[in-house]
Design a protein around this nucleic acid. Sequence first.
DNA 1: GTCATGTGTTGATCTGAATCAAAGTCGTTG
DNA 2: CAACGACTTTGATTCAGATCAACACATGAC
Lengths: 243, 243
Amino acid sequence: MTVPHLTAVKCSECPIRHRAVCARCDTDELDRLESMKTYRSFAAGEAILWRGEPLEFVASIVSGVASLSKTLEDGRTQMVGLLLPSDFIGRPGRSEIEFDVTATSDVTLCCFDRKPFEKLVDETPHVAHRLMELALDELDSARDWMLLLGRKTAREKIATFIEMLVRRSDLRNAPNNHTTVLPMTRDQIANYLGLTLETVSRQFSALKKDGIIDFSDRKNLVVKNLFALHQETGDDSDGGVLA
Amino acid sequence: MTVPHLTAVKCSECPIRHRAVCARCDTDELDRLESMKTYRSFAAGEAILWRGEPLEFVASIVSGVASLSKTLEDGRTQMVGLLLPSDFIGRPGRSEIEFDVTATSDVTLCCFDRKPFEKLVDETPHVAHRLMELALDELDSARDWMLLLGRKTAREKIATFIEMLVRRSDLRNAPNNHTTVLPMTRDQIANYLGLTLETVSRQFSALKKDGIIDFSDRKNLVVKNLFALHQETGDDSDGGVLA
DNA sequence: GTCATGTGTTGATCTGAATCAAAGTCGTTG
DNA sequence: CAACGACTTTGATTCAGATCAACACATGAC
């Protein structure tokens, strides 16, 4: 899978250098970080962190997709965030989280023990600064998602989702014929968008029938017309001839 | 209006000392802050900040209620945040915001010019730390709201909203008979909850009929049974006698 | 007072998405 | 390769909440 964030910034292989920590890659602290890191893997479906559990480490996604979700007492759940490669898990200064973190696909994390990581953060203001930026970015995207959940129709939700995937996974193609991989099942997409899996499936079928997207298989998606994604129903039957 | 946050922390009158800046109130920096502050007022309905506009100041709400909202091209809008007295407006290190800020009622703000405020923040790590905490709090409540918008029913949305108001406005009453003031119109509540104003009105009526809440007038609300707020429909007709 | 105007309630109807139900597709394992 | 399970599609039906519409109730201006 392509990770534009990693190739965009020329720096060594550890993702945390890029998104979470280092806007100024030539400092000493990075060597300290480097010596602290460990890798952990989780199988698809496995829990990474439970709500309320003490937070032992911070981490950066190396590969795979993880999700943040909240659950009501009766089992209804809503994803509240999606973590793609190079994204950061962690709450500077917090020891608990308010949501579950689950591996959506097989996931590899690059982890740092929380305590020494926080010590490092406290001692290097530009790293703290970078983490604040990340938190504000998260806040902005959470608010975008609130608009989606509260006011968009099923088709608009799917369109926004596809557009987000294209934006994050495909930076080099021509304006049309973008390619993406759906990183999750219909059920998980439904949880992310505040829909049911049936509605997600129907909307994909409708977009396909309208010639806006196409599937080579269940996961691999071609967007044939990015602009039309955001248009009305594409009810193009042209008003057929009188019978 | 009662502002529990202000009375809970014994400190001088400026709200920014309490929520945004100062967990350690005896430092010199506060005097610098004190000399920087100015007050601004906005009438109900007036815009405080527009999306994309350069951000000239940070501020703390002294009185009144303001809201953050996002709007789709066709006019559908969704509130993405509600600012009550002592809440903070501002994005350390950012010069723009991604949403509109509007005065929901008449509002008074305690403002600080952004540049000198940020200088102060850069020079005093514990203030930066406090701002990070605020950002993470915001993120947590944004995610709670995502669960509400994506998965809760109209009744549950109203119940959660009422409970939030009670929690923030009324800390000293007995477990039942909590009192609150609805700080906004039905229409604004609907925008906050991802509903229409008619649905909001109907749900209030239903809760009243079920004896769970009561209105002395349109704005003043008594919660007679906080627990029952979160129960099922309260369809208590008991299965009447056979006709 | 009465006439606007903004706000709130209630009723009737419609509709988009949920729910219920049945098949179809793919990948895996024995 | 057959049989199983996980995932997906599609159809029929239902229902919560939206929409459309009318009226009620304040408040303030004149």
